[in-house]
Write a protein that binds this DNA or RNA. Structure first.
Lengths: 359, 359
DNA sequence: TTGAAAGCGCTAACAG
DNA sequence: CTGTTAGCGCTTTCAA
């Protein structure tokens, strides 16, 4: 199985993808030991300059490609992290993912991504990748821990390096208060969104929530209540529609809202995609936004400002959320102590054309 | 380093994440050989029922988790494929990715994704993951092969399992005619899009193209020319604006179009995101769509129909594209012969509200 | 600073 | 059908 690189010049029957040379062959070619090859390549400053040069040159010449699987097996570091995401095609998520991936790449890590569609089974599959050594850590985009309850309840089970993105994971079987997370102040954001509408003179403000199981949605609703209460306006539960952070929820919830006896003059949607569905539905039913009904979104997704009308919304620092998640997770993997588990990033109300004064 | 599982009952100083038991320990516990353990777990039908039962039970009891890295090293199958994508937050791409990932998961594969931002460097990094055995195959979303030209030019280098998604990769150094790809008939789609506008009475039809380097954009333009020529309308290059399949290109190209002496009555955008930017810009300049100018998109992204106006566009079978890409790639990895490298899927013109008759 | 050698955890001959 | 054993390609003691 010798080939051109080792001197034998007869054409091999079939050259596989690239020269399939390992440390051993490379060491032979360079005339050094495998240990030196490994060191020269992975710990360049632990060998002499000459050695380094010799090895690097040989590696270059034969197009040596280290087998990272073997290295991982030996070092028990896979160099992968896994991102567990309910829906990767969601515009807000994909923005976070993008910066996440970039930040991870900068530190030499790749991102495996698992789109779970919210299916428990699939969460478990991806959560298990750390067990099976395919990944060194996990970024969770949902509020559920990707492990069997049985496992979570066990004392023998310690959570692997893990970071929560934009959510507060909780479990009946495990204290998650120390789980690092990167998010915004959702209560405050919900309050500010509502205050904006109140300032415009709206009193009947409907809400299309995110997944009501999710702490982020509950917190935003909390903020809504706070703002209402501060303005002396009673909370009316019939104005609240349970959604799930999707475009479709925006559509169906809006239809329900339109059936109510007293129509609200404004709708606070807990994500921009829902707002998009909401506006489309309102238009379909003959209502103009914002003239007849104001709509306020959440996230400030990439094209919120290009919609018609451009969307008033709460901007989340997508890029920074992703980056911080990666940084914290990689720090954990490196064994660093995380001083402050909760990273609360600033949000910002973006006032555009989908909201207007009621008179 | 014995622990509870092996009988010693003193609490270990620190229990690592899960019982760190390997085939060897498991074999001992089950009272069989490591080979049998491996077989029972990976090739259940190659062992007796009793053996299977015994091993599975023991594995269950101790919470055995196979180290997939080790298995991969041994079998030289990583179980990963890598998707090389210019921009993962692009709505069309993320739709394809989603189904791709699902289809891969069904066959036991995970998807590593690399967002390249169109940067050559990063393409090479991800392309190299097959060399380093981290992935078994590649799905390329761009028209560039993710390998150094030097490598491509070399006879010793054979392409790894690879599939092109929605594009025709080409290289000056390598014949890519046999590279499997999954796409639609872009020429025909471009023609049909244009014909739709012609039928509505439009004669001055501007185009905002995709990346002009990309075959898909060229083909769509080809179709545009064909339709024009068939209608006896001369092609005018000043109507063509070079874009790059982004929202921002839609904005800037539209501004340029509006500066022209003779304003077109319709604009054909080669992707929906560009169309979104186009429409927003037209509106900003006081033009109503479709009354003043018709706009036609491409892709039929998830929310095209919810935009205002809802977007007339060419629908691509996103779900099927992703699935087919995965299937073909995995077949290649499994060594199956691919009978037909080109998979051309049907597209469909979706007529909505952003286009209308000129009179 | 370098080399020899052990072994990460698994699978796959091969032999029984 | 089951067990013994030899590695996959790398890193990392340990000794020189």
């Amino acid at each position: 199985m010798e080939n051109v690189l080792t001197g034998t010049n007869k054409k091999p029957l079939r050259v596989l993808f690239m020269s399939n040379i390992g440390v051993k062959e490379l060491a032979e070619i360079a005339g050094v030991s495998t240990a030196s090859v490994s060191r020269a390549l992975s710990n360049p400053n632990r060998v002499s300059k000459r050695m380094r040069k010799k090895v690097l040159l040989a590696a270059e010449q034969v197009g040596y490609q280290p087998n990272r699987l073997a290295a991982s097996l030996r070092t028990s570091r896979s160099g992968n992290i896994v991102a567990i995401i309910p829906d990767i095609s969601d515009t807000f998520n994909s923005g976070v993912i993008q910066s996440l991936e970039r930040a991870a790449a900068e530190r030499g890590y790749s991102v495996l991504f698992g789109d779970t569609q919210g299916i428990r089974e699939r969460e478990l599959v991806y959560g298990n990748m750390v067990n099976s050594k395919q990944a060194d850590g996990i970024i969770v985009f949902s509020h559920r821990l990707p492990f069997e309850d049985e496992l979570l309840a066990s004392d023998d089970f310690v959570l692997p390096p893990m970071v929560n993105s934009c959510e507060y994971a909780h479990s009946a079987f495990r204290d998650t208060s120390l789980l690092p997370l990167v998010t915004i102040d959702n209560v405050k954001a919900g309050r500010e969104a509502t205050e904006h509408l109140l300032e415009l003179g709206h009193k009947d403000i409907a809400v299309i929530t995110g997944d009501i199981e999710s702490p982020s949605a509950r917190q935003r609703l909390e903020g809504y209540k706070e703002a209402l209460s501060q303005a002396g306006i009673p909370f009316r539960s019939e104005l609240i529609q349970a959604g799930d952070y999707t475009l479709e929820a925006g559509v169906t919830s809006t239809k329900k809202i339109l059936l109510a006896k007293k129509r609200p003059s404004a709708i606070f949607c807990m994500c921009d995609e829902s707002a998009l569905g909401c506006i489309a539905t309102l238009r379909e039913h003959g209502f103009d936004v914002p003239r007849d009904i104001s709509v306020l979104g959440f996230d400030d997704i990439r094209f919120a400002k290009y919609l018609s009308p451009s969307l008033t919304t709460i901007a989340q620092p997508v890029e920074e959320i992703g980056r911080r998640c990666a940084e914290i997770l990689l720090d954990m993997i490196d064994g660093k102590e995380i001083e402050e588990p909760q990273t609360i990033l600033p949000h910002k109300l973006m006032v555009r054309d989908s909201t207007s004064a009621i008179w």
